[in-house]
């Protein structure tokens, strides 16, 4: 038996929005530790790693580890039927072929349930090595989304350069060039507005805009985003999910031909 209840059901809706354009289908791995997902996009350029710890759920029971393969377009249709203020409960039997979603309104006067057929996915998991990154930048997630959107107008890829002074996003295209520089903030009233840079070595790497823009669909999950960069390895773009989880996007860099 698997059962997970999240009072703040809107978090699950936001997680769905954060992955549904990048992935067509994905396996949700459930264990007593919580819910995890790892999947590559169709082109195998990026990888999504989602972790929601059991401690973040109001109720969490997982008697046996199980993997639930879901079509994300179908899952999205179901989660769109939940209101932002609804509590969401997922339920499945051991070795399930369906999963049930129950949505309860705040006053408990409206209860709806939907069941969805699961699919068999033969997804391979990749081992992600522990990496000490040369630069780790934390910045407001809305600012990152805006920069990616703005610069995408001018070219297909963005170069991210990081020094101890700050982070620079650059684009070059047919009509010209664009640069956005963010300095490390000295004093800010709100932690959510801070830009912080932890640098061991300066880094400059180039990434496809298309994927960066997909990742920014996670912006509603967290006011801050963390970018981790090292030469010749994938960029990590991380958004926290409340206090109990995260979604990490890994993006393979463009390499010189």
């Amino acid at each position: 038996m698997f059962e997970a209840r999240l009072t703040q059901g809107s978090l699950l809706k936001k997680v769905m929005e954060a992955i549904r354009e990048l992935l067509n289908e994905a396996s949700f791995d459930c264990s007593e530790n919580g819910i995890q997902l790892q999947a590559m996009d169709n082109s195998h350029v990026s990888l999504v790693s989602l972790n929601m710890g059991s401690e973040g759920f109001d109720k969490f029971r997982c008697d046996r580890n199980l993997t639930m393969g879901m079509n994300l377009a179908s899952l999205s249709k179901i989660l769109k039927c939940a209101s932002n203020s609804d509590a969401i409960t997922l339920k499945a039997q051991d070795d399930p072929d369906t999963v049930t979603f129950t949505f309860e309104s705040e006053n408990n006067e409206r209860v709806s349930d939907y069941s969805m057929k699961l699919i068999n996915l033969d997804q391979e998991h990749l081992g992600i090595p522990d990496t000490e990154y040369s630069c780790v930048v934390k910045m407001p997630s809305a600012d990152f989304a805006r920069i990616c959107k703005d610069l995408s107008q001018f070219g297909d890829c963005i170069t991210i350069s990081c020094t101890k002074e700050g982070i620079k996003f650059s684009v070059a295209g047919d009509i010209g060039t664009g640069n956005v520089k963010l300095a490390q903030t000295a004093n800010v009233d709100k932690e959510s507005e801070a830009v912080t840079v932890e640098m061991q070595e300066p880094v400059s790497l180039t990434f496809a805009c298309r994927y960066l823009n997909h990742f920014t669909k996670a912006t509603p999950l967290s006011e801050q985003v963390q970018l981790s960069l090292s030469a010749d390895v994938p960029l990590v773009v991380e958004y926290k999910i409340g206090e109990f989880g995260h979604i990490r996007y890994y993006l393979a860099p463009k390499i010189d031909e």
Binding site: P129, P234, A252, P253, K254, D256
Partner: peptide, 14 residues
């Protein structure tokens, strides 16, 4: 603007 590499070049199968 460089060649897009695959994520599978960096992470091995678990």
């Amino acid at each position: 603007s460089g060649k897009q590499s695959s994520i599978m070049n960096f992470f091995s199968k678990a």
